[in-house]
Amino acid sequence: MKYLQKLLLLIITFILVQTTAMAGNLRIVASLPALGQIAQGVAGEFAEVKVLAHVGQDPHFVPPKPTLARHLAHADLLIAAGFGLEIGWLPPLVDASRNNNIRQASQGYLDGRNVLNKVLGKPQGKITRELGDIHPEGNPHWWMDPVNGVRLAEVIAERLSQLDPLHADIYRQRASNFAEKIKMRIPQWKTSIQRFSPLVSYHNSYLYLTQRFELHVIDFVEPKPGIEPSTSHLDALVSKMKQNNVQSVWLEPYHDGSMVRKLCELALASCRSMPDAVQGEGFDGYINMFDQLAAGGK
């Protein structure tokens, strides 16, 4: 009995020590894996980063689970893409978490608006449902441009410096190192990725990337975002692809399917699964994504 009591005491002490140790850490929650990797890179061992969506999931539609709300409940900082990308699933989770620190416009929230100097893909003219499921505030897939990734790291570093001034210099240094790494690699990526242009993509997820690396996007498989194509659209697309000598069709991992594979066959283009996030820790994960994209995806 005495032995068991000692063991119990040891276990309880062990757990308490863990809790106090963790209490010093910041808790960051990122909506998407790529954003989480950048946050992990800046924060390092000073924060616990949780990500809501996982690699390969469609960022427009993440199925809500209770654990996600729980992560949000304890978060000090929420990082999201914004521009309406997560509008279908994130707000209810934030409400359910009852965490007022992470609401929009508070110190515990940041998204693309805090990061971008220039928003691409803003629709012109009158916006109605006729245009399909478009993003009225602009194209939200902004992390696909490595320069925006750097900008995000800098913004995260500034925000963490406010939340945890003790390590401010370290955060800023890490963001700066990351910026150097990216700057060095952009020319290599740009040369390598040219061979896949001109291209067709399923959904307009790669706008920021194609602008940065000066790639030519001919058309999209979905005639309007969120709408299945018709036979005439697909047959016309095949001719258009042949006419423009399209090299590759870029698929988000969640849009791969028999229809697109067939399209690639008919149009003599290569079907490439181009991820918007890959497995990996910290900055390496984010950089790895561009390495994979430059190599042609899968």
Partner: peptide, 23 residues
């Protein structure tokens, strides 16, 4: 299975447009 969700929807509810001559 982290990556199989999209694959699964394609399996369960195929698309008419994806049918090949073999299918």
């Amino acid at each position: 299975l982290p990556h199989a969700e999209g694959h699964m929807t394609d399996l369960m509810f195929g698309s008419l447009l994806g049918a090949s001559y073999f299918d």
